[in-house]
Design a protein around this nucleic acid. Structure first.
Length: 423
DNA sequence: TCTGGGGTCCTAGGACCC
DNA sequence: TCTGGGGTCCTAGGACCC
């Protein structure tokens, strides 16, 4: 059997662990720049706020209604996620970490009371981490997803819902709008709805060949999974990333190249660290800039340039220097840049790294050692990112807005919570 | 004034090979 | 007047996910 654990309103729940007084109150977590609402508590949803709402449009109403807003604190969320996953890993046979707030599980079919087991597992995660979760159990991943929606929606399930026979399956599919099915996005939802297919049950009763023809192999897989035919497997080890991007929107339009170069250094720093984390090297890099697409009065400009490096690299200074040079070729002083970033592609694993014919191997080894040392210093919990490129200046801090940030409760010693006990 | 960031998979069509 | 057959690789665009 497959299980799908989904953390409820994950970012909001992370904030509430350290501010329990916010439990039961409307809370939202904002995207970069305090731009959009990306996570909402049930109370905030009940007030009509939606994921994706621009904060500046809802702020007045949110303030009036006592909504507490947080800037995204992704370091905290990443650490809380790791805690949740480690609790799960200790309990189940196999686990696929599917996203920051979700994991698929292989459950031992020998367990006779899966329903009770699921409830105990949900409760254990909550007890050990403070994060409330919903668990769905079924014979396929897609059905487990549906089961988890029910577990989340109806408190009666006590955190765990199981679909283990055809009667339950058909009932659940009939109650599930087609757009809520994993694999059916906005476009397909509209197309199917136009054809009168509005529930998952109706979709599952279409002719298989027709689904294959109109929705390709991915649609057919969803169809099979809904019909109880498992064809999406558990991926226990995450494959290496094939591309990586680091990009940001800025708080204000940027006209000067110095600030953009500073941002490039910050992006290169992030990508260098991520490359080294998965022991990969990048062979190609592209840099992009864009004006504010929402500002209709402004002349629009967006451009990108890409470049093949002389040899695969994961060296932050090399990435930064390259990006800054590339930036110059697309930089136009007349345009206010609202968003910029770097994408690296053609990533190769360490064992396939081929230096150029003229490479200075000693220098390469030296740079590798330097980066390893840098990573180990910056990994220290007391003070993350102490060593960085001078060209980075204050990095993205000055260029982005984060007015409602919470603390790094779990990864920075100075931010640890203190509790005052009164008699 | 203020609108996120980071990924993957699949297919069609063009380029190119023998 | 007549112009093969079979294959791979790459990329852009569209779809999806969180």
């Amino acid at each position: 059997m497959f299980g799908l654990i989904d953390c409820n309103n994950f970012f909001v729940s992370c904030e509430r662990v350290f501010r329990p007084s916010l439990i039961g109150r409307p809370v939202i977590v904002l995207s970069n720049n305090d731009g959009c609402a990306v996570a909402l508590s049930n109370e905030a949803k009940a007030l009509g706020f939606k994921r994706g709402d621009p904060y500046f449009k809802i702020k007045a109403q949110a303030d009036r209604q006592g909504v507490v807003a947080f800037s995204g604190n992704h370091r905290l969320y990443g650490d809380m996620s790791a805690r949740v996953m480690s609790v799960l890993r200790a309990e189940v046979v196999d686990i696929e970490v599917y996203s920051i707030d979700e994991a698929f599980l292989h459950l031992d079919p020998a367990i006779d009371d899966l329903e009770g087991y699921g409830r105990r597992l949900s409760r254990l995660v909550w007890r050990n981490t403070g994060i409330p979760v919903s668990l769905g159990i079924a014979t396929t991943k897609t059905l487990a997803k549906i089961a988890s929606h029910f577990a989340k929606k109806y408190p009666g399930y006590k955190g765990s819902c199981i679909i283990d026979n055809d009667e339950k399956r058909l009932k659940a599919l009939n109650l599930t709008p087609i757009g809520d099915v994993w694999g059916i996005g906005r476009r397909l939802n509209r197309r199917l709805t136009e054809q009168g297919i509005v529930t998952a049950l109706q979709f599952s009763q279409l002719e298989r060949d027709k689904v294959r023809r109109e929705m390709t192999i991915t649609g057919e897989r969803t169809w099979r999974e809904l019909n109880g035919d498992p064809c999406i497997t558990l991926e226990i080890t995450a494959p290496d990333k094939r591309t990586m991007t680091s990009s940001r929107s800025f708080a204000k339009e940027i006209y000067d190249i110095e600030s953009l170069q500073q941002a490039m250094c910050a992006f290169a720093t992030i990508l260098g660290r991520k490359l080294r984390e998965q022991s990969s090297y990048a062979l190609e890099m592209s840099v992009f800039v864009a004006t504010n697409r929402f500002n209709e009065r402004q002349l629009q400009y967006s451009n990108a340039v890409s470049y093949t490096l002389h040899e695969p690299t994961a060296d932050t200074p090399t990435l930064a220097r390259t990006a800054m040079t590339m930036l110059k070729s697309i930089y136009r002083p007349a345009y206010g840049i609202k968003k910029a970033g770097i994408t690296i592609t053609r990533l190769v694993p360490a064992e396939c790294r081929q230096p150029s014919l003229f490479a200075d191997l000693e220098d390469m080894a030296k740079r590798d050692r330097l980066m390893a040392t840098l990573d180990s210093i910056n990994a220290s919990p007391g003070n993350p990112d102490v060593v960085r490129l001078a060209a980075m200046g204050s990095g993205l801090k000055d260029l982005t807005r984060r007015e409602h940030a919470s603390r790094l409760y779990t990864t920075r010693l100075a931010d640890i919570i203190s509790i005052n006990c009164h008699k």
